Simulated scan of single mutants.
Amino acid sequence: MIMRCNINSSPAMKGFAARLVMISMQVWSLSAAAAAGPSSKMVRLVPAMYVLGDSTLDVGNNNYLAGPNVPRANMPLNGVDLPGGARATGRFSNGYNVADFIAMKLGLKESPPAYLSLAPRPTALVLSALAAGVSYASAGAGILDSTNAGNNIPLSKQVRYFGSTKAAMEARVGGAAARVLLSRSFFLFSVGSNDLFVFAAAQPTAGDVAALYASLISGYSAAITDLYGMGARKFGVINVGLLGCVPAVRALSATGGCNDGLNLLSAGFDGALRSLLAGLAARLPGLAYSLADSYNLTQVTFANPAASGYVSIDSACCGSGRLGAETDCLPNSTLCADHDRFVFWDRTHPSQRAGELSAAAYFDGAAGFTAPISFHQLARKI
């Protein structure tokens, strides 16, 4: 209904649009209430999803950034397994990524579109924001503005882009309607890995680690607090996984083993992030969150890969050289025979199958992979 409206800026039409949003919210509420039933697989659990983070969630924002050093996945063999035929969409995956699968679990078709694909068309941006959401995630992005500076949309800028989106929504449907929609929507985060990669590459001293964590947690806190101030209430946050075990890092080792130091760095950040979210929930009324434990899920998967159908946990399906990890996934790369049996699609990113299994674990909260509640429980909070 919202997407077919011809909404202009007159007070009468703005009021009409606001009523349409409220009606849509009422329909969504009834659908959410029905989600406990046995036939609720495709029920829309939230009115929209807004995505902030890095390449694990990016659905094409970096395709619109200029510069030779911008990381992009806009060429084959990326997207080779997407439904409807191979096409590189900007996802660092052979198909969908974890944001897509979480969106599907929430009742959306796939991840909402990239902000930069919508920004030149204000009407399209507003309609997407109201009807499904927007993705601001950017490959290479960090919590810190200095991380891979100039070649991505850092987290702080992603939050500012959301602020612009919110202002456009309010101009179209009014503040009250926008506020209700945002309070019921799902805000998905996954960021921090690039900050840790950059930090580790600089060969820091032990004394630098505490300062890094303080800077990262301060930036994360500012992002969530700013979004909360703009009306966000439901935060699904994916922590940092086993960075020391991605193929690009393993390939640097003579044995092909994980880098324990990088994994410890990741674990320390994850502990600080857990404390941050608990503290924010205690002091910001109405804030609810679910922290997804990518680190633990990866450990469990690596301990018994066959249980998830994997034959490789250390190599890239698409790449070249040692462990397929000496180059990015390019049109002339070597491709594994069965994409679903590799944890990693390229030298640093999970395969479509890994994204699907991760989303299922976070949504269902199985085996304690989320805390204090699952993504599903977060979505159903009223």
Score class of each variant (00 low, 15 high):
M3D: 14
N8S: 10
A12R: 15
A17F: 02
M22T: 14
S24W: 10
M25R: 12
L30A: 15
A36N: 13
G37L: 14
S39V: 08
P47D: 12
G60E: 03
N61K: 00
N62E: 01
N63I: 04
Y64K: 08
P71F: 02
R72G: 04
N74L: 05
P83T: 06
G84Q: 04
A86E: 06
G95L: 10
V98R: 09
I102Q: 11
K105W: 00
K105M: 07
L108I: 01
K109T: 15
E110D: 12
A114Q: 06
Y115S: 01
R121N: 12
P122V: 06
A124T: 05
Y136R: 00
S138W: 00
D145P: 07
N148I: 05
N152C: 11
I153M: 07
F162Y: 13
E170I: 15
R172C: 14
V173E: 10
A178K: 06
S183N: 04
N194F: 00
F199Y: 10
A200S: 13
A201D: 14
G207K: 00
V209M: 09
A210H: 03
G219D: 05
S221V: 03
A222K: 13
A223I: 10
Y228V: 11
M230F: 09
G231V: 09
A232C: 06
A232H: 02
G236L: 09
V246A: 07
C258V: 07
N259M: 09
N259I: 09
N259D: 15
D260I: 11
S266I: 01
D270H: 02
A272P: 01
R274P: 03
R274M: 04
L277I: 03
L277S: 08
A282R: 14
L287E: 06
Q299H: 11
V300G: 10
T301S: 11
T301I: 14
T301Y: 11
N304T: 15
A306L: 12
A306V: 14
A306M: 10
S312R: 13
C317N: 01
T327E: 03
T327V: 09
D328W: 02
D328M: 03
C329D: 02
N332T: 15
L335T: 10
L335Q: 14
C336M: 11
C336I: 08
R341V: 07
F344M: 04
F344C: 03
T348I: 12
R353I: 05
A366K: 15
F375G: 02
